[in-house]
């Protein structure tokens, strides 16, 4: 019974069918099977946030979900969000503000940021910091990230900061 399980799901809008071992987590499935290496693995115990992806529209830790649990689910990764243009403005704000250094946390950070902006169009800095509280960044000290998200929120509301 530790045999592979067939799953069918949508990843970045494409139908994916695969046979996976039950123990394979979603992060490793995306990275190793689908070669979507933008989903990063920083701790594998659900703390660092680098592996954050969207499952059926909600952000989740892909190291804390089994690939077999994604049967019929719609997964979106950083590659998908980038190609669709959904977060182009956010990425642009990150670039302008240098809100990334090594970039390892960035895909997860962008996922969390976009999640916040969808739920809360005008978050204050404290709210932004709170929403990112599960995403580690060891390089920036967070301020540039908060700035970039804040300016994106302003821009989306058609106002200048």
């Amino acid at each position: 019974m530790t045999a592979t399980v067939a799953i069918a799901l949508s990843v970045n809008g494409e139908l994916v069918e695969a046979n996976v071992l039950p123990r394979l987590n979603l992060a490793d499935f995306l990275r190793e099977h689908l070669k979507l290496t933008g989903t990063h693995v920083g701790c594998e115990h659900g703390v660092c946030g680098a592996c954050t992806v969207r499952v059926n529209g909600d952000i989740v830790r892909s190291c804390l979900m089994l690939a077999v649990q994604t049967q019929n689910a719609a997964i979106e990764t950083i590659e998908g969000l980038s190609d669709s243009g959904e977060i182009a403005d956010l990425q642009s704000a990150f670039r302008e503000r240098n809100a990334l250094q090594c970039g390892f946390c960035t895909p997860g950070m962008l996922m969390a940021a976009q999640d916040l902006l969808k739920q809360s169009p005008c978050p204050d800095r404290e709210r932004i910091r709170e929403h990112l509280s599960g995403n580690y960044c060891r390089c920036t000290g967070y301020q540039a990230i908060v700035d970039a998200i804040e300016s994106t929120a302003w821009a989306r509301r058609g106002r200048r900061p």
Binding site: G46, G49, T52, V55, D58, I59, V60, R61, L64, M65, A112, D115, L116, H131, S133, G134, N135
Partner: peptide, 9 residues
């Protein structure tokens, strides 16, 4: 409880 991504699951 934890963080948004955890609360979603």
């Amino acid at each position: 409880i934890a963080h948004p991504a955890i609360r979603n699951r």
